[in-house]
Amino acid sequence: MHERDDIITEARRWIGTPWRHQGRSQAGVDCVGLVVLVARTLGLEPEDVTGYTRRQDGRALLRYLHKQLELKPVTDWRIGNIGVFKESAFPIHVGFLSERDGVPTVIHAHARRRQVIEEALLPYGAPFVVFSFPEVH
């Protein structure tokens, strides 16, 4: 059994890792790859899906997440939860929800910034949906 803090500690180890579409290593990750690799490092075994386009189908992403993760209330998220974010009205991006010095943050592989970053959540935008790993409390 893992704690939510374990997820954030591991996710922060990836900060600065280059962004790479469908990346699944320290050489580069995308947002889904970050979630998969953090989970695997903690001994969790999420099903990984690759082969998606750069502008992935948000419905397919949500089906994939619903199949493996537990849905959580979007208004009552906790650190270590996985937020799904919309871009141009489509749910196509994921990141770990956290906080630093009491400020809500998101840790994610940011394509335009070309790396994994942690940034304040408020300017980035609230998650559309929130999930958690079933094995983490």
Results as ranks from 00 to 15, higher is better:
residue 102 G to R: 02
residue 66 H to F: 13
residue 10 E to F: 03
residue 85 F to Y: 13
residue 111 A to T: 09
residue 115 Q to G: 02
residue 113 R to M: 13
residue 67 K to I: 00
residue 102 G to T: 04
residue 114 R to I: 04
residue 105 T to W: 05
residue 123 P to Q: 06
residue 90 F to E: 14
residue 56 Q to V: 11
residue 7 I to G: 05
residue 50 T to K: 09
residue 16 G to R: 09
residue 75 T to S: 15
residue 73 P to Q: 06
residue 56 Q to P: 00
residue 19 W to G: 02
residue 9 T to I: 15
residue 120 A to P: 08
residue 67 K to Q: 14
residue 51 G to Y: 06
residue 60 A to G: 10
residue 129 V to D: 07
residue 6 D to E: 15
residue 11 A to R: 03
residue 3 E to C: 11
residue 128 F to V: 08
residue 28 G to M: 06
residue 114 R to F: 10
residue 123 P to T: 10
residue 2 H to W: 09
residue 61 L to Q: 02
residue 39 A to F: 11
residue 69 L to M: 15
residue 83 G to N: 07
residue 109 A to W: 01
residue 54 R to C: 00
residue 101 D to C: 05
residue 45 E to D: 14
residue 79 I to L: 12
residue 114 R to E: 15
residue 134 P to I: 07
residue 64 Y to W: 15
residue 67 K to S: 13
residue 111 A to P: 01
residue 86 K to L: 05
residue 75 T to R: 15
residue 30 D to T: 01
residue 47 E to V: 14
residue 113 R to Y: 11
residue 84 V to S: 03
residue 32 V to S: 07
residue 46 P to G: 03
residue 65 L to Y: 02
residue 113 R to F: 10
residue 92 I to W: 00
residue 31 C to I: 06
residue 29 V to E: 02
residue 78 R to A: 12
residue 55 R to L: 13
residue 69 L to E: 08
residue 111 A to W: 02
residue 19 W to H: 14
residue 108 H to C: 04
residue 6 D to R: 06
residue 28 G to T: 12
residue 60 A to Y: 08
residue 78 R to P: 04
residue 116 V to R: 03
residue 45 E to A: 14
residue 84 V to F: 03
